[in-house]
């Protein structure tokens, strides 16, 4: 089975966010960048689990410059077979999806995995855009995936207040949420072998992004917390009704 995992680079969850260049760009000084957690913990590990059981290969695909190679090497250290990096700066979901889907169209993959969203722009758009361009089914927010045959999977998908169970034939695109797999930490052998695994650089297609960032803002500072005496819950109830007007 040929599996593909699309990975993205994001600031670490705990990063302090600031902007420069007229508020158009993230201030990267002092920020640690990581592989997007949904891509790493759930999409990548699930693909590796399938490969371990059914054979085949797990490729990772990334859109970004060579400075992002350390993130790709981490995916190889966790257990991916090989990697492809489309050599251009990622500027928007539509551009990333177009570059990735155009690459996928030239190769045959059975399952294309993404994380459910990135933790920076929280857009959840890349999977759907790729599926549309490829004309593949798209299962979003999968919390469980089991191959029942070489070409068929049963997928559980999260939705408001419950789950849906879906049967789908390959090829398809799936976005991975919590529950799909357990995070794996690369071991020393993985880190050593990752260095010699193929990391192929792919030339990007011509494309003009359909959106552009006008500006960023930091949210207004929150007022200091107002403490209420634990013996006086009538006062809290009153404040929620009269001051906050939420009950």
């Amino acid at each position: 089975m040929k599996l593909l995992v699309c990975i993205s680079k994001t600031p670490d969850t705990t990063a302090k966010i600031a902007f420069n260049g007229d508020n158009t760009k993230l201030e990267t000084a002092g920020i640690t960048f990581i592989m997007n957690p949904y891509d790493e913990w759930y999409a990548l590990v699930k693909a590796i689990e399938i490969q371990e059981k059914w054979g085949g290969s797990v490729s990772v695909l990334h859109v970004g410059p060579s400075e992002n190679d350390s993130i790709i090497r981490k995916a190889l250290a966790i257990g991916a077979t090989d990697a492809y990096r489309i050599d251009t700066e990622a500027v928007s979901a539509d551009q990333v999806a177009f570059q990735m889907a155009s690459f996928i169209q030239q190769h045959a993959f059975d399952i294309i995995f993404t994380g459910k969203e990135t933790i920076d722009y929280n857009g959840a758009e890349v999977g759907g855009r790729m599926a549309a361009q490829l004309n593949f089914p798209f299962i979003s927010f999968a919390s469980h995936l089991e191959m029942v045959a070489e070409n068929q999977a049963i997928v559980k998908r999260d939705m408001e207040g419950g789950t849906e169970t879906i049967q789908v034939n390959t090829p398809f695109v799936v976005s991975a949420a919590k529950g799909m797999a357990e995070q794996r930490i690369p071991n020393m052998k993985g880190i050593m072998t990752a260095k010699s695994k193929p990391l192929n650089v792919v030339t990007p297609q011509e494309y003009s992004p359909k959106i552009n960032i006008v500006s960023h803002e930091l949210p207004p500072a929150k007022k200091a917390v107002q403490y209420i005496d634990p013996e006086n819950m009538a006062e809290l109830a009153r404040l929620l009704r009269e001051e906050a007007k939420v009950i």
């Binding site: 539509d94 999806a97 929280n122 857009g123 758009e125 759907g128 939705m159 359909k210």
Partner: peptide, 23 residues
């Protein structure tokens, strides 16, 4: 921006050759 809306936005935008913003 529900679980179905999030699943649809990228797909619809591609089919309409449209730019999109979610959430």
């Amino acid at each position: 921006h529900s679980s179905n809306g999030k699943s649809l936005i990228g797909n619809i935008a591609y089919l309409l050759d449209a730019g999109s913003v979610s959430a």
